[in-house]
Amino acid sequence: MKKKIVILLTATLLGSALTLTTSQPVQAISKKAAITLSWHNQSYRKVKLTKTTYVRKIHWRTPNYKSTVGPKIKLKKNKVVRIQQTGTDFGWYMHIPGRSGDYTIVKRYNDYSWFKLM
Rank of each mutant, 00 (worst) to 15 (best):
I7M: 08
Q84M: 08
Y93D: 03
D102K: 01
A28L: 09
G91E: 02
S23E: 08
I73T: 13
R45V: 12
H40C: 04
K77I: 03
W92H: 02
Q42N: 13
S38D: 10
I96C: 02
T62L: 09
T104L: 03
K51I: 08
D89H: 07
W114S: 04
Y109P: 02
D111S: 13
T86R: 15
K116A: 09
S100K: 12
V55Y: 05
L37W: 14
F90Q: 02
A17I: 07
T21Y: 11
L75E: 04
I83Q: 00
K31A: 10
L9G: 15
I5L: 15
R108Q: 08
K31C: 11
L13W: 06
D89R: 04
P25N: 14
A28D: 14
G98F: 00
F115V: 06
N110A: 12
G15P: 03
Q84Y: 05
V81R: 00
L14P: 02
Y65L: 11
Q24C: 14
P71V: 15
V69C: 10
Q84N: 07
Y44C: 07
D102T: 09
M1L: 10
S43N: 15
W114N: 03
T86V: 04
G101I: 02
Y44M: 15
T50N: 15
Y65F: 14
G70D: 14
L75M: 13
K74M: 12
W114I: 07
L37G: 08
S16P: 01
A34S: 11
T50Y: 04
T22C: 11
L37H: 15
Y54F: 15
I83F: 01
V6M: 13
G98D: 02
S16E: 11
F115R: 00
Y103D: 00
Y65P: 02
S23K: 13
K107E: 14
V6C: 04
K4N: 13
K116H: 06
G91K: 00
F115M: 14
K107C: 03
I73D: 00
K4A: 15
L9Y: 10
S43D: 11
I105D: 00
K107V: 13
T86E: 10
W114L: 06
W60M: 09
S16N: 09
Q85F: 02
K72Q: 11
I96F: 02
W39P: 01
T12A: 09
R45P: 00
A33W: 12
K46T: 13
M94G: 01
A11P: 02
K77C: 01
Q85W: 05
S43E: 06
D89V: 07
T12K: 05
M94Q: 03
K116L: 06
L14D: 04
Q42P: 01
K46C: 04
T36F: 11
R61S: 12
L117N: 05
N64A: 14
V6K: 12
Y93H: 07
S67G: 05
L18W: 10
A34R: 12
I83T: 01
